[in-house]
């Protein structure tokens, strides 16, 4: 009877309901988080584990490969944000307007790549961007009379390939986010703007843009997160974690390389912790900058 009373108690019920989440959160997130931070101060060898203080962090400061990986991840994040917000927004606005016919077809075409596996599409892109004359991109270059390019061996051509893959895959998804944002804006305000004689640009600048801001913030946030956490795309494009001059290595790729491939989990955890701190800082700055952290005006 007591048990039943406990279950029906209005005080305890909420805790019972959130318990599954709390449990999984603690076991799978908080526990690994704390362990990872602890492990980042250790040298984990085959037989012995030693506490080494900040030496892993000191090593990270000097580690040129890690710096390369960091630069790569940042560049990738910046470029994807720069490409994956304006263009999907533009497409969404077009889809929402009367200018485009057969919208369903276009939406499907743009969304389709998101359904493919990165592993398969990455492999296909690798073949497209191969350095041989017979590669698709080099054939296209040949059409306009240019010499073949070693796409995946040079920094910027490699980055280009990576961005093409990323945009190809995510444009449709972001477009859908924006589209749903646009749909939530009522038609009345546009009508009243029309009556006031606003131009299309004015309507976009002063109505659509501010009203769609929550969606933009969301897309920006997940883009930053996805950019910093990117691993599989480059992993597939270069058929592994190794690329010439490490042009395809990302922070997570480096973490994987250290932890799994080189069996150096202590150092890998250091990389992970640094990545977490960086991501936290960036997200805080971004949330503060766009006003999410401001006090609500009442």
């Amino acid at each position: 009877m007591k048990f039943k009373k406990f279950l029906y108690s209005q005080k305890t019920a909420p805790y019972v309901f959130v318990l599954p989440f709390i449990l999984s959160f603690v076991i799978f997130w908080i526990y690994p988080l704390v362990t990872a931070i602890l492990m980042s101060f250790q040298d984990i060898g085959a037989i012995t584990t030693e506490w080494v203080g900040f030496s892993n962090y000191g090593k990270l400061l000097k580690d040129r490969v890690f710096h390369t990986a960091m630069i790569n991840s940042f560049e990738y994040t910046v470029f994807t944000c720069a490409l994956l917000i304006p263009f999907p927004l533009l497409y969404a606005v077009l889809m929402d307007s009367r200018l485009v016919k057969a919208k369903g077809v276009w939406k499907a075409i743009l969304y389709m790549p998101a359904l493919t596996s990165v592993v398969i599409s990455g492999t296909l892109f690798r073949l497209m961007f191969t350095e041989y004359k017979t590669g698709q991109m080099n054939m296209l270059l040949a059409l306009i009379g240019m010499a073949p390019v070693k796409w995946l061996k040079n920094k910027w051509t490699g980055e280009f390939a990576l961005l093409v893959l990323c945009c190809w895959r995510w444009t449709g998804v972001n477009m859908l986010y924006f589209l749903s944002g646009l749909k939530s804006i009522g038609t009345e305000i546009y009508e009243s703007a029309d009556i006031d004689g606003a131009t299309s640009w004015q309507k976009f600048r002063y109505l659509t843009w501010p009203l769609i801001k929550p969606t933009s913030i969301y897309v920006l946030t997940i883009s930053i997160y996805a950019g910093l956490a990117m691993f599989l795309e480059s992993f597939m494009l270069w058929a592994g974690n190794d690329s010439p001059h490490n042009i395809g290595l990302t922070i997570v790729g480096y973490l994987y390389k250290r932890g799994i491939q080189k069996d150096d989990l202590g150092y890998a955890c250091t990389v992970g912790v640094v990545l977490m701190v960086i991501a936290l800082i960036i997200n805080f700055i971004q949330l503060a900058w766009n006003g999410t952290l401001k006090k609500e005006e009442s």
Binding site: P32, L33, L232, F235, M276
Partner: peptide
């Protein structure tokens, strides 16, 4: 933000997943 940070670490866990892929490489 905290959850996202945690998710990021979970992302690290995720990297365990494609072990096959990497190792076939």
């Amino acid at each position: 933000s905290g959850v996202m940070a945690a998710a990021l670490l979970a992302g690290c866990g995720e990297t365990n997943a494609p072990v096959n892929a990497s190792d076939t490489a």
